[in-house]
Nucleic acid binder design. Structure first.
Lengths: 337, 337
DNA sequence: TCGACTCGTGAGAGCGCTCTCTCGAACGAT
DNA sequence: ATCGTTCGAGAGAGCGCTCTCACGAGTCGA
């Protein structure tokens, strides 16, 4: 209320300074080509001198666009936020791509239950032109509600149940199958898995990949479930070993859980990979630094982010986009298997 | 352009439906008490029935507020983004606090040089009410430029050079001094440090803490510099050992570097803590899972975020805030020292 | 030379909201 | 019964921008 030294210049100010009309200045600001070069030049000079910057609120009011995109991270995402490199990587990818398009990134960390309504309010109020929704548990109703509200939406990860909005995902199952083939090729016969949460598609599909891979072996599955975090991997590995001490191979559905498994194995005197071979999933930076370095299924985290951004931008422009984009994964062989 | 089934309801729509004037509806929406209860009630009903949500652009245009705060992460921050838990933690803290205040979080990942201008444009356009600036290298001019633009700013970490804007920081030096006392109390006499980048205040002050702690011992300092990341810790530890094989204690200026040091020590056959005691700084989640679990200086990452948010909100409201808030650190003793 | 077209520019409406000002009604005091 | 006061509610201006429409000045073919 007191910090307006001389009042910010408006279109009107610039117009007067350049001896033109508001409309013409607006044309120059928005890059219209139908302005006489010399007039455009003098307007540009006036803009520079006055330090004029368009007021986005006024612009939004008439264009009905805000040039900003929301990235929504549900509670399940924020919980692992500080320990997992997945979401920071996605955020970075989305952020970079949006910056290139000169759009703003509005981050909505849905930490609590009440956030749901808040998100819908934002979206209904057209605070953002589009929404990127990251990884949700179970049958989240949010994507559908957003779609119903008429807002462009893209989700990261195929939703459980029917996909009603476009999504970006990776080849979970085939990546895991490659990992399984690698273990089998190593001569492993008693292969267990530490699965992810089964109310998340990533958890389910990685388990499916394990089961598919096991079929070739004709061996019985050996599954313990974790929550993608390290501690759960440690615990699951212990349960696994209690159920079958002869396990010689483990696929863990996340690098963090694989690292947990590595620790438990070491503690219980198993050598990796000699006694037990371990493969993870994600290929986060830290995977290169586990002991031993982790063989893992690489997924292109950064690219997931950039592709999410690309798709939402196209949707916002009214273009059609593929119902789904599924990015490849690949096995990165290090020393744990 | 085609997704407006019936046109979003405006104040006018609600006013007509409720048989009141636009002004009165506005009063109800904004919680004014000077509306007759029954009138207010019928307006509220109309709002609910029509699904009315205020248009923030229109509101901003007249109030000159946007109710959104920018969080700027400079390039140096995004680089470590995916491996370090610090910035995700800060983001989460800021996000939570802003959500409570019903403000939006606009994330500006300053990935390139050109971002500088973009940021200034945003800020000059009053796209945001205030700016939270995270950890910058060297004598960044951004805080000062923002302040000059008349925008409320708070920074995370005391800037190098003179602080021209309020900041939130932690007690780097005294935390490190506690760590040094602990090492000395353990009988360690040949204590080295893996310092952080010396163009960052955090790097400098932690080194200062080491040097202060060493003074009591009367021993010569032994310093190698890293970049806070794991690999640099591995390398620095190797150089340190080459310079003096009798090192029996190490303070690393980040947990990541401490973890790197642990790996190098193990590889070179040193037992931790028996031969060499190691202490880190940060207390990220992963510190509980190093081998052995890392003794480290805890800093309240999440609280840094919430305090940043609090301060910027107060500044935006025109209140005065302390020139600096310095949060305490404390030594967390685990098994590495 | 005149009508038909461009083409660049300005006038003016209007986006949806807030906020000041005004006004009428109700009420208490004299 | 009259006047001042209070209080709730409406009228209307205006925030800064975009965009349609109209208009005057050239340009060109007949």
């Amino acid at each position: 209320m007191n910090e307006t030294p001389a009042g910010r210049p408006t279109l009107e100010t610039v117009a007067r300074a350049a001896g033109a009309s508001r409309a013409t200045v607006s044309r120059v600001v928005n890059g219209s080509t139908t302005v006489r070069p010399d007039v455009a030049e003098s307007i540009r000079r006036a803009i520079a001198e006055l330090g004029y910057v368009p007021n986005p609120a006024a612009r939004s009011l008439v264009t009905q666009r805000t040039d900003s995109i929301a990235l929504i991270l549900p509670e399940s995402a924020t919980r692992v936020f500080s320990d997992d490199a997945f979401f920071p990587g996605v955020i970075r990818g989305v952020g970079e791509a949006l910056e290139k398009a000169d759009k703003q990134l509005v981050l909505l960390l849905a930490s609590t239950k009440s956030s749901h309504d808040r998100i819908l309010r934002y979206v209904h109020g057209r605070t953002v032109d589009g929404v990127v929704l990251a990884s949700m548990h179970g049958a989240d109703t949010l994507p559908e509600e957003l779609r119903a509200a008429g807002v462009p939406v893209v989700t990261s990860g195929r939703p459980l149940g029917e996909a009603t909005v476009p999504y970006i995902d990776v080849e979970h199952a085939s990546g895991v199958e490659a990992a399984m083939r690698h273990l089998v090729g190593l001569g492993r016969r008693r292969i267990a898995t530490i699965a992810g949460p089964q109310d998340m598609v990533a958890g389910r599909e990685r388990l499916a990949g394990y089961l598919n891979g096991l079929e070739a072996l004709g061996a019985a599955p050996l599954v313990e479930e974790g929550d993608f975090m390290r501690q759960s991997g440690m615990d699951a590995m212990e349960r696994l070993l209690a159920r079958d001490p002869d396990i010689d191979g483990v696929f863990a559905a996340s690098d963090l859980m694989a690292d947990g498994a590595l620790r438990t194995l070491r503690r219980l005197g198993r050598r990796v990979p000699d006694d037990v071979a371990v493969i993870g999933f994600d290929d986060v930076d830290a995977a290169r630094f586990t002991d031993p370095p982790l063989t893992t299924v690489h997924q292109p985290i950064h690219e997931i982010g950039t592709r999410l951004a690309e798709q939402i931008l196209r949707l916002v422009e009214g273009e059609e986009v593929e119902a789904s984009v599924v990015l490849p994964t690949r096995l990165v062989i290090r020393e744990s298997a």
